[in-house]
Design a protein around this nucleic acid. Sequence first.
DNA 1: TGCTCATCTACAACTCGTGCAAATTGCGCA
DNA 2: TGCGCAATTTGCACGAGTTGTAGATGAGCA
Lengths: 158, 158
Amino acid sequence: MKPPTELAEAFRARGLKVTPQRQLLFGLLDGNTSHPTAEGLFVEASAQMPGISLRTVYTTLTDLAEMGELQPVSCGAGAIRFDPNVDDHHHGVCDSCGNVTDAYVVGAESLIVEGLDGFTTNSASIVFRGQCAPCASSTDESTSNPIPNSQQQTPNTP
Amino acid sequence: MKPPTELAEAFRARGLKVTPQRQLLFGLLDGNTSHPTAEGLFVEASAQMPGISLRTVYTTLTDLAEMGELQPVSCGAGAIRFDPNVDDHHHGVCDSCGNVTDAYVVGAESLIVEGLDGFTTNSASIVFRGQCAPCASSTDESTSNPIPNSQQQTPNTP
DNA sequence: TGCTCATCTACAACTCGTGCAAATTGCGCA
DNA sequence: TGCGCAATTTGCACGAGTTGTAGATGAGCA
């Protein structure tokens, strides 16, 4: 995601106005790696700007998503999360605490998909489910067969 | 998913009762490859058994999912879908008509995931987004870079 | 400074799913 | 076949998350 100053310029370039509410949200999203929900951002924004409306947060997030500066992430149940990281990446979701972690997949070009005859694929998203490091350390369970159709490994960054 | 008769036995084996409502839902799900929503099944069930409650549909689907006879599928926005196909597989979602298609992924064992340091992966689900054959034929667009981090191919079954 | 129109806010409505309690019913048992 | 109990069904209401709408507000421009 662009820094707040560039986002403001991008908004103006699209004929959208740069309001204090939007600037506040730009700042909250900048460098945010916690995949916040609209509700979560609303709480943070309310702390700094009491009176801001949840509706405003939704509108701004939707605008940012339409501009490609934000990636909406739906990880199954619960509220939609917004990811300022718009790089090509996927997500790991902790079943215990609900935290969402960015994941970069290498070797996807070797995948062969069967059953989608005639299906024109525009994008693919992989959601890994399990337990993040802090949660996994308390309940020690080993990984087994994470990706259906075969087994899969989740090594640390080489 | 097991056939209706075996599902009835499985229900009894777990101490659950086999009611006409449940038998109707067993029949509607048997061989169903359309990934219906609870609402959709409720409409079909209502046609055959007027008066059946949406609440009952939810209860029965939840029971089946707990028994492993049904796979809840959340493909981003919208209602949760239920998949009688409990094989290890993934899904393709048509952005035009919303149809969900089963997809079998080969080669997932070669994937290397970066960024999930310490993350204990229990499962992974891949959702392909694009256009199904009927929708794609009307708007002719070619596939490009479907899986982030690299390109990916969606060949027909070899 | 004044004007125009996009934005903000507040409220309500919508969708999807669940909790609860009363009425109903499947099923084991005699 | 009849009985009794516990599971089930049903309808209503509620909750979370999200969106529509209309009047008030204010940013941006001349």
